[in-house]
Amino acid sequence: MTELPNSTDRKMGLVIDLDTCVGCHACVISCKGWNTENYGAPLSDQNAYGADPSGTFLNRVHSYEVQPPEGHAQLVHFPKSCLHCEDAPCVTVCPTGASYKRVEDGIVLVNESNCIGCGLCAWSCPYGARELDLAEGVMKKCTLCVDRIYNENLPEVDRVPSCVRTCPAGARHFGDLGDPDSDVSKLVAERGGMDLMPEMGTKPVNKYLPPRPKDQIDDQIDILAPLLAPVAEEPKGFLGWLDKALDKLPGHSEGGSN
């Protein structure tokens, strides 16, 4: 099981739009709620009401400040969960076979009943996508909501990950990134979707859509300036213009029959 499949039938994953994510943490808590109640052991919390609260989460939202060479600093909200890598080092390092990548959809999972909680898989993951649950002593990670996406007890529209269903801004997209015709693949192609730490050679399935260019409005003034040409220099002239402009309004030139 620890061997990666040579290829997977599909490459299910997430596409996260950094241009739209407002950093609301909805996906974080929705994920916590679903996965506490569902797949495997609950996501526990230690010192829940005390000095140093800490708990297991499968999805976290960071934020970064980017200072371009010129112009204002920008802020980017940055959700991060397991990227379901094609060359997932977390799988091959696992001594027990608890970590595996599914052949049918490429989802990387932990079989909790085999996991010894050695932590090595988390050590090998560049993205911090795995957290060892302190109460249960086993490794937890994003399941891509494998217990939702095929779940026949859910209406068809709801067979998407919990974080995707809940994201208010619609910044999270789910689909088959192995199929070039899927909506997610098209989005990635259109928007230049990128990999995190490509140099690690993990070949992440999840992609990130980069923020669009910002603060461009000043540069447009040259094109837009004619729009602002004054209609008259004097306030009096302004009223003269007003008179003429009103006359030109449609529907007003002939009598009051309409």
């Binding site: 060479p69 980017v76 923020p211």
Partner: peptide, 14 residues
Amino acid sequence: TATGLGDRGTVRAF
């Protein structure tokens, strides 16, 4: 490279 934002400017954790 971690954030993929490196080519836009200097990245700092906020």
